[in-house]
Amino acid sequence: MNMTATGRVNLVAMAVLLFSMAGGMATLHAIDQLRRGSVAQEALYLRSSKVLRRLSLGYTGLLADIYWTRAVQYFGEQHHKGSGDFRLLAPLLEVTTELDPRLLPAYQFGANFLAPKPPNGAGLPGSALALMKYGIEHNPGQWRLYYNLGFLYYTELKDYAKAADAFAQGAELPVTNEFMPILAARMAQHAGEFDTARMLWFTTYQSTKDALVQENAVQHLRALQVDEDVTRLEQVVEKYREKTGRWPLSIGDLEREGFIHGTPADPNGRPYKLMPEGRIEVQDPKSLYFITKGLPPGAESPEPPRETEPNSKP
């Protein structure tokens, strides 16, 4: 078969094109293998949001979206590898939020990437806290950020008082979630700040028409009363012991010595039990949801049926 000169040139050109394309891709793959990790490292050279802001010529929103996507990809990749090295995560999130301080997902998910211990997260609760505070500073009207801050204090830092404070601040915003005061009260209860918790739960009860939320508030107020009663009674028992040099044998002993007036009872009307070594317990723990005190050793606070606990857990 005879081929024209043009045909031959076309054939050779096509062959060179395909060969070059395949060879180029293979070479690039080899370069990637050689420079593994260096692509992500480049983020460190461009971590100044001020420089990036100017380089973007004002198109900062798109650049922030790119950096956020990069942060997600970086976290996902390190997490997938089971690596404990998340050193670029905080800078990537910083650049993202400095380029677009209103990019809420970067705070909400970013804090959850940063705070947990490796391999589930970067193990940087301090950076997560700084990120959330920066987010709140620039988005003071977003209750979700206060929610995330409270969640962070609660789950990672175990600082119930600050968690309660964050939830309470979020609950005071004009646009908020009805569970914010519930969460605030719960945190305060964990922190032992009974008056704060009682006030918040009472406010929750008053500020909603939702029967489930009201029932939830009532249950927590009852639990709060138990926790406070048990705490107070155990203090009285300790005082009795200091005065008499022995543990009281019954609640009646406390009454006879004038430490208390009447027989104290839980919200269900059942008198509290005095246990060995001065512990106070409720008679029927299963009937009192959310209590943290007055439980038998090793027992956990019972949870209410799902219909009376409408997704109020953080």
Partner: peptide
């Protein structure tokens, strides 16, 4: 490849 920014990306990328 990203989380919760679909609308933002479409507006930012589209207009840019």
């Amino acid at each position: 490849i990203s989380i919760d920014v679909e609308r933002l990306v479409v507006v930012n990328l589209g207009l840019t």
